[in-house]
Design a protein around this nucleic acid. Structure first.
Lengths: 351, 351
DNA sequence: AGGTACTGTGGGAGCGCTCCCATGGATGAT
DNA sequence: ATCATCCATGGGAGCGCTCCCACAGTACCT
């Protein structure tokens, strides 16, 4: 596989210059062939390719990076401790999409965790050294200084889940609004009349959008939106339990719950059990994320699925464009690239 | 944090040369300071450090890599599909150890999956380009050509789990022999008399060692080793079930089972259940790996734990030495570095 | 006083590539 | 036949660093 021709134990790797000599052409021409420039005659190209094969030539990445001022590497930055990274299937799905899309290219993917302060300092140093051509940002919390740092260093970046309506970074997101709407439309179609919702942390933009989707679905069905039926959660199981308990107290005749994350749905389910409500007979329950717990819940939970792998692919797509785009950053900011991917409602027994 | 002094929107990063000019010294001196050479006077060092801070200087990695012929990066190569990587806590633990040990250094860790043929070709290309200073190999199967490729390219590497008694690569392993022995000694201490074992795939060196540990423990207790009590498994749940069924048929009076992996223990447990044997009353059961399933089994499984995080640390240790060691590979091969870490028996209700 | 040894320092050379300008031959228009 | 154009091609310059040799200065011996 590797180790053609004369090389092997020599230890020295052939250089462009040597390939050029062997092929009887100049250095520039070999470079053009290696980089797939069209400005090379077929005969010359063939000769160079033969020389490359004979010598087992492999370009020196460091030299290329130095001369061309690019690294051919991009980083997937995860501002979470590694533990969460492994625990949540979200990241693994995302990684699969990113990896698949990147396989087409010569780009190398780096996985960087920035959960602790120490790791974040390291990351800052790393970015300052421009060791990557671009950055993929996942699960960034509001107020995180990372996006600004990237902008200041003028490093192309794409964020998953815009931080607000007017996110300045190119972003990829699933259709939270549509997802929330589809959950509620489903409940309406099932004949439910008193539909409540448990929202996520409203400083997360996506959570707001889900809640707005809830409202939109009700309005479109000609129903009135009762703000008392909307309880804020915080994406945790306890939060879901608390919100559900609150809702049951203030609105005992509810017959459907849209929990805006599966984890909160698990908390809500517990609270409903404690209140003696049966699922789905007395109360229908719909979650969001279609995570593992959705499938394993009793009864299995209807949930809104996001196309996470597709989001990963889309992020790479955007980022590669961003990197290729060598216009000054100022004008680039004009065409805000925001990709929104559709969600899918996965109906199970809970509704 | 980043973006001191004049830099920021300029786009151009300061170079060594500029730092030198600013500090009123030569290029070489700045390089010495940056690289922590002791051959610099305190006054000069201070001046250079000030200039570095003022200019916000960050070394250019590509230039350094080119000039010094090193990359300051090492790769953790996982010859498995990503799915398994995320599924098995083994990798996550390993990664934690590796990351912790590496945090002390300037080294950058790359995670490379080589599950598919395509990925393997990519990896070969990657290694041929010498894009890393060293490689960490985990869960390598017998017959894998990767170790040879690394040897041929003269890339320092460390393997977790030697492939045989005379592994040529530096390796880190847990004490499989001692682990197997401790499991059986425990069963003996508990008063069990007819102890059987289900081995792993015997083409895996570690599996052989565990089985030998079983034999050693029996011999040391003055008991005779009956080869009929040893059934080969294959590390799968079905294999464990099959082996257990076989053992029950041929040795109905067995009162203890040492399954050489937790997964096989799960299979064995099922077979014991089907045969109406109670655990631990009729039959004691011990597994190996102390994986998640051990804790969650009914009854919770006694199991042999390997210090995986520690193994990760040890691998980095070995590898960094290997990299620092610039003696020719031939003489280096003489001092085979093999680290073996002790295991720990975690006793639960199954024994 | 001269010699030796060491220490801190400056700067040339060179790592292997890309970028770009210059060159020369082929092609087509006049 | 003449000139402008258009390739394909060669090779100089330079990317930012490390390595190493040379040199001045100081210290300590004869």
């Amino acid at each position: 596989m590797a180790g053609h021709g004369a090389r092997g134990r020599s230890g020295r790797r052939p250089t462009l210059e040597e390939v050029a000599a062997r092929a009887g052409v100049g250095r520039g021409t070999v470079s053009r062939v290696i980089n797939g420039s069209p400005r090379v005659s077929d005969a010359t190209r063939a000769a160079v390719e033969a020389a490359v094969a004979e010598l087992g030539y492999v370009p020196n990445t460091a030299a290329r990076a130095l001369a061309a001022n690019r690294t051919d590497a991009i980083a997937l930055v995860v501002p979470e401790p590694e533990t969460r990274f492994f625990a949540e299937p979200y990241f693994s799905d995302m990684l699969r999409g990113v990896g698949a899309e990147l396989a087409e290219t010569e780009m190398q993917l780096l996985l960087i965790f920035a959960g602790s302060d120490r790791e974040r300092r390291r990351l800052a140093q790393y970015l300052a050294a421009h060791r990557v051509d671009g950055v993929l940002l996942v699960s960034v919390h509001a107020g995180d200084p990372l996006p600004d740092l990237l902008a200041q260093l003028e490093i192309p970046a794409v964020i998953s889940g815009p931080r607000s309506e007017d996110e300045t970074l190119p972003s990829v997101d699933s259709d939270n609004h549509g997802g929330g709407r589809s959950a509620v439309e489903h409940l309406i179609a099932r004949g439910r009349t008193r539909i409540v919702t448990i929202t996520g942390r409203l400083d997360v933009y996506g959570a707001q959008r889900r809640a707005e989707g809830y409202r939109a679905a009700l309005r479109d069905a000609g129903r009135e939106v009762d703000e008392a039926l909307i309880a804020p959660g915080d994406f945790t199981e306890e939060g879901g339990h608390r919100a559900m308990t609150h809702l049951l107290a203030h609105c005992p005749d509810l017959d459907a719950v849209f929990a805006e994350s599966d984890v909160m749905a698990a908390g809500a389910r517990q609270a409903l059990r404690e209140a003696g409500r049966r699922i789905p007979d007395d109360v229908a329950l719909v979650g969001y994320d279609d995570s593992v717990i959705a499938r394993h819940m009793d009864p299995p939970l209807t949930s809104v699925r996001q196309p996470i792998e597709g989001m990963g692919r889309a992020m790479i797509d955007l980022l590669l464009h961003e990197i290729a785009d060598d216009r000054p950053a100022a004008s680039r900011a004009l065409d805000r690239r925001q990709v929104v991917l559709p969600t899918e409602l996965v109906v199970r027994d809970s509704s």
